[in-house]
Amino acid sequence: MSLLELESVQASYGPSQALFGVDLDVAEGELVALMGRNGMGKSSTIKVISRLLKHKSGTVKLDGHDIAALPPHKAARAGLGLVPEGRRCFANLTVRENLIAAARAGHWDMARVTALFPRLEERQTQLAASLSGGEQQMLAIGRALMTNPRLLMLDEATEGLAPVVRQEIWAAVRTLKTETGLGLLVVDKSLAELRRIADRAVILERGKSVWRGDMAALDRDIADKFLGV
């Protein structure tokens, strides 16, 4: 059984429909890349999964249970971890406080998060607002891990970062994939990195999932057609 399962999901921002039928699933220990050009509904899909946006039809299931009625904080408690687009740490809290505020009992604690991102250990007493973009991203991932999720969603986790920092983030994602049983749903523009790391991919086109399959099957024609690369 899939950890996360979306079936024919449609959602709107007021009168403006953003999703017209999204199907995707993520199994435990699997990394699924959610791909598509800008404005095709990737972030809206992430918002629907984390319940920040309510869907109007279709089903969203976590562990086989429909989570449509759950408010965002209960969905997070049910095991959905989100690293939102644009990092979004709690700017007026220190690194340590950001992590403590989110902490829930489980495998991931302060020691494990700082072992994954040693830079956070060095910056523990610094305000999140004073961190570099890369460090803020590490903190955002660390904060999501502190909630001990079963599924971690990373929305544009490497956007706007220096290449060296991007590599650090990808290395951490690889570690999460190989050393934990976490399900991972990753939205990113770097097709090359996703090819190296993802098990499967889902491509969205105008709010609809138009292609699903193994990463190895995502050939140049499909990439040209739907991703414009």
């Binding site: 984390s50 920040l52 408010p71 965002p72 904080h73 209960k74 997070a76 408690r77 989100l82 939102p84 979004r88 709690f90 700017a91 007026n92 809290l93 406080e97 950001n98 403590i100 505020a101 989110a102 902490a103 829930r104 904060r143 999501a144 502190m146 909630t147």
Partner: peptide, 26 residues
């Protein structure tokens, strides 16, 4: 103020939506 409750409260003041995504009800 230094306990998880106080930190979460302060975080909710900054951005309630972000707090929800880490499993805390503002």
């Amino acid at each position: 103020a230094r306990a998880p409750f106080g930190l979460a409260l302060s975080a909710a003041r900054q951005n309630a939506e972000r707090v929800e995504t880490v499993g805390l009800g503002p």
